[in-house]
């Protein structure tokens, strides 16, 4: 596949991302979305101008910790309800287009 991207890359290849997401794009769509993606990244890129040298790196937005649940089971959904939104169901299972050859 084409160019990879990383957190530090300035540019994100829209065709590469679309490939990961299994989305087919026409040339026109790719060009339009690439422009939009570039704009978004440039917008977020404004953050790089900030001096964050004194700020501690964080990985969560709240003060919450743990928030565990006891290991006690409850009854599941009725299967009918589970499968109600499936575009296709058979043998009590979701059916999708074949994913390997």
């Amino acid at each position: 596949m084409a160019m990879r991207f990383s957190e530090n890359a300035d540019r994100m290849d829209v065709r590469y991302v679309a490939g990961l997401a299994r989305i087919a794009l026409s040339d026109a769509e790719a060009a339009r979305l690439q422009g939009q993606l570039d704009d978004i990244l440039a917008f977020v890129g404004e953050l790089k101008k900030l001096d964050v040298s004194g700020v501690e790196v964080t990985d969560v937005a709240t003060e919450a910790q743990n928030a565990w649940r006891a290991d006690v089971p409850i009854a599941g959904l009725e299967r009918e309800a589970t499968l109600a939104n499936a575009p296709l169901a058979r043998h009590g299972q979701f059916v999708v287009p074949k994913v390997i050859e």
């Binding site: 743990n66 928030a67 565990w68 649940r69 006891a70 290991d71 089971p73 409850i74 599941g76 959904l77 299967r79 589970t82 499968l83 043998h91 009590g92 299972q93 979701f94």
Partner: peptide, 29 residues
């Protein structure tokens, strides 16, 4: 929802493990 269900398919499921939008995970301690 019960883990290790060996019976019929899709009987031990819920919005969280189905990955439905908006369903939130809660950790099993």
């Amino acid at each position: 929802f019960p883990a290790h269900e060996e019976g019929d398919p899709n009987v031990a499921v819920c919005p969280v493990c189905l990955g439905l939008p908006g369903a939130m995970p809660v950790m099993n301690g």
